[in-house]
Each structure stands twice: as C-alpha cells, then as structure tokens.
C-alpha cells in the first residue's frame, strides 16, 4: 500500500527525514510515534503529495508520488483520506454540509452526496449531530466529523496526523477505537501521534521516529523503549513548577 525507499527531506540545511525506508501492507494499522519534530507529519505529507522528497522514492498504492505532476496529485488524494492535525471544519457549515462539501468538490452528484454523508455519519456515530455547527461540537465530536469527511470517498488508505491532540484520555481512546473499526473494514490506517497511552493500549504496529530517522519498528507493541531512553517521561506533580525544578 505504502512504501518509502531511502527518503530524505531537507529544509534548508536541516534534515526533517533522513534516508527513511518503510513499507506498510494493505489493511495494516500503524502508529508513527516520536517527539515533536521527529518527522511524523513530514512523512505523512510525503504520502499525500504535499511535499516532495529531496531524495528517495515514495510509493502509494503502486504509484510513485514524487513523480506526479501537481495536477495529478488530486487524483492520488481521492484514494486516501487525510485528517490533518488541526482537523479543519468550515465554521459556517453544519456537520452534514462540511462532509458534503468535500464530496461535492470532487464531483459527487446530489443523490450520491446524500447517501454517502448519511452512511459516514452513522459510521462515526455522529448522525444525531448532523445539523450542528462546528462551534457546538466538543473536540472529540469535531474530530469524528473530520474522520467522517476523510472517509466519505471510501478510501483504501487513511492518514491521521495527531488525531488525539487536545483530547482527554477517554475521548482519545474513543477516537482510536473508531480508527480501529475503520481498519477492521479493510482500510489501511497510519496514525502519527506522540500519545503514549493510546499506543500502549492499542497494541498495533509501532514505527518510532527520532530526528528524521526510524529508530524502531515493531509489528505489535506499546510505546517504544528506545524513545523512553532518549526522552524519559516527565511526571508532572501538581503544585510544582518547571521554574523551580532542579
């Protein structure tokens, strides 16, 4: 489904990714983990053609993404669902209209839009909020709408960038469960996250990135020990401050 061969991405003189090779089979569920700046988002952006590699080759669904012309990128994106970190929703449109908007933009007919929006809203458990506006939704609900929009075109690949950022642990786990359900229906899911608890609990394939390089890749497991060694978890004790910690 997805393959990266010796991929590097350089911004100025800094490496965002350095000679990364990775293969994800169809139907897999993969967590990309790492600290901020490890290269997780860069890797996802390579897959949906938002950036091009400085060196190496990127394949998605058998197509070499780095060779695509700008005008061919949209057709690649119709074969995947992308959930960006900030899960952007149009504030003046209802949940229903937000999902319909994406489908209409790629030429779905009115009747197909109606049918498909109802299906994905049911799939993400948001049918009851179809006529709510984004400001009336909780963070978890807004994330579900973003997932529904990404799923609307029934893509074989789903890319989610920090889908649990700013969500409480329970809601985060609900979102991961939703992504797992989608994966069970055959969709390949790649989730970039630094949320330790969901990775530990899900027990899926975990690819760890550090400073642009893959430092571990385990088929099933929790948050990688390699990252813990490099960046030991900090326990935040209520009442203490970073300023007076020695």
């Amino acid at each position: 489904m997805v393959e990266l061969l010796g991929v590097s991405v350089v911004y100025g003189e800094a490496y965002a990714l350095r000679r990364v090779s990775l293969k994800v089979e169809p139907g897999e569920f993969v967590f990309l983990v790492g600290t901020t700046g490890a290269g997780k988002s860069t890797l996802l952006k390579l897959l949906y053609g938002a950036i091009r590699p400085t060196e190496g080759r990127v394949f998605v669904d058998g197509q070499e993404v780095n060779r695509l012309r700008e005008r061919d990128i949209p057709f690649l994106r119709r074969r995947m669902g992308v959930i960006p970190q900030d899960y952007p929703l149009l504030p003046r449109k209802t949940v229903w209209e937000n999902i319909a908007y994406g489908l209409r933009a790629i030429g779905y007919s009115q009747s197909a839009v109606r049918r498909r929006v109802a299906q994905v809203l049911a799939q993400v458990g948001m049918s009851a909020q179809a006529h709510a506006y984004p400001h009336q939704l909780s963070g978890g609900e807004a994330q579900r709408v973003a997932i529904a929009r990404a799923l609307a075109n029934n893509p074989p690949l789903l890319l989610a960038d920090e889908p649990t950022a700013n969500l409480d642990p329970d809601t985060s786990w609900e979102i991961v469960q939703l992504l797992q359900q989608i994966n069970l229906r055959g969709t390949t899911v790649i989730v970039a996250t630094h949320n330790r608890s969901i990775v530990d609990r899900a027990n899926k394939r975990v690819v760890a990135l550090d400073r642009g390089q893959i430092i571990s890749d385990v088929p099933r497991g929790g948050y990688p020990a390699e990252l813990d060694k490099l960046y030991p978890p900090v326990a935040i004790v209520p009442g203490t401050s970073f300023l007076n910690r020695s």
Partner: peptide, 17 residues
C-alpha cells in the same frame, strides 16, 4: 484559505478550486 485547503485535501482538481 480554509475552503481551499479542504478542497485540496479531499482531492478537488486545481481547476475546480
């Protein structure tokens, strides 16, 4: 910008956007 970004993410062609 938000509409443009969403259209681009879902795979709308440059012409449509």
């Amino acid at each position: 910008q938000l509409e443009v970004r969403i259209m681009a993410l879902v795979g709308a062609t440059l012409r449509t956007i």
